[in-house]
Every structure is written in C-alpha cells, then in structure tokens.
Amino acid sequence: MTAARAAAIVLRKEIRAEMRTRELLQTTVTFVIIVVVLFSFAFEPTAAEARRYGPGLLWIALLFSGSLMLNPSFAKEQSNDTIYALRMAPVSPFAIYLGKMLANLLFLAITEAVLLPVFALLYNVSLWPVLGRLLIVLFLGTFGIAVTGTVFSAVATQARMREVLLPLLLLPVLVPLLVASVEATAELFADAPSLDRTWVAVLVAFDIVFFATAWMLSDYLLEE
C-alpha cells in the first residue's frame, strides 16, 4: 500500500469518527467564538482599533483553539487502545502522521470557516475584498499549526498532564509562525491592502522546514 493511500484511509477514519460524535468540532468552534467575544472586552472594537488588534486576535484565537483541538488527536487512540492497531498496521508511520495531520488541517479549516464571518461581523472588518489573499495566509498559517501540532500531540500523549503540556510545548514553538501570520494579515487589513511577500516567504519557509522535520521524525512518533 502506498503512503498516500494509507494516509487517505487514516484521514477517512478520522473524518468518520468525528462525524459520528462531532465532539471535537462543536467544542472547538464554541471555544473559538468565546475567545473572540472575550477579546472584545480587552479593547473597544471600533473599526480602527479592530484593524490594529484584529490580526493578532484572529491568530491567537486560532492558535488557542488549535492547541485545544490537537490534543485528542493521539490521546484518543491511547485511551481507546487503538494505538496498538495503528502501530501494527503495515503502513509507514509517516502515512499515519500524514492522515492525522490532514484531518486536523480540515477540522481547523472548518473552525476558521465559522470564525471568519463572526470575527468580521463583531469587529466590523470587511474581509470580502481581501478574502482570496487572506485565505492564502490562513492556509499557510493553519498548515504550520497542523504540522507541528500533530507531532506534539503524539509527544504529549506520552507524558502526564498532557492537556496542559501540549499548549506549553506548541505555543512557543509557533511564535515565528504567529508573528509572520499576524504581520501578513495586518498588511491585508491596512487601508491599501497588499500581500506582503516577505511574511508569506517566512510562512512558506516555516511550513517546509517543519513538515520536513516532522517527516524525518515520524518513525519515532508511534513508538512504545
């Protein structure tokens, strides 16, 4: 079986499991909306203020919900004892990682699909004119979160206090990604919106480097 096919099977399994309970999506989507509402108390969300703080807020909300959502990715295999089945499966660990990573990417994208209109509405930001370019930045940033978060989800599963540990490990590692995403988004929210090449390049570089590292280390992720 090729890695791509194995990854597709893992992805289908993740989607099917999620569609049966919808546990992950309903909690994450609710959480991300709570974060957006709570941030409105930190400053007066007028258009000018929102333009200043909006990008940071958007990405902090995504990062928080990501660190929350990625935790069960491997933890549920552990608690259901299905991790042994994954270990025994005659496919490369990278394929399993890839399937899980794509599932997390998809779930994060669904969260964003809910978050964006709510954010635009509550903070009075018009996203429509820059939507295409914003989606590029969102994709690059979310890809980085999913790539790194899926690895660290597997790492945190091995430790005690894993629910607290995952944000501890994940959030600081994602700082360069956060900075680049926020700056690129801020350029899009400016009066004369533009897609900043430098920050997009930083995002692409981050994604490539972290994905390559995850690929090289994937053999060790499912070990006992």
Binding site: T148, V155, L169, L221, E223
Partner: peptide, 24 residues
C-alpha cells in the same frame, strides 16, 4: 516535559523529538 514522563527510555525519545524541533 522531562519531569512529566516517568519511563527513562520514553523520556529520552520524547524529549529528543521535542529538542530537535526547538533547535530549528
């Protein structure tokens, strides 16, 4: 992270993976 993994071999492997990412 090291304080939260009891088994020495697991602790070593898990922290090695994390350490490689941090070094980036």
């Amino acid at each position: 992270l090291r304080t939260l993994v009891a088994d020495p071999e697991r602790r070593a492997a898990v922290s090695a993976i994390f350490g490689i990412f941090v070094f980036l």
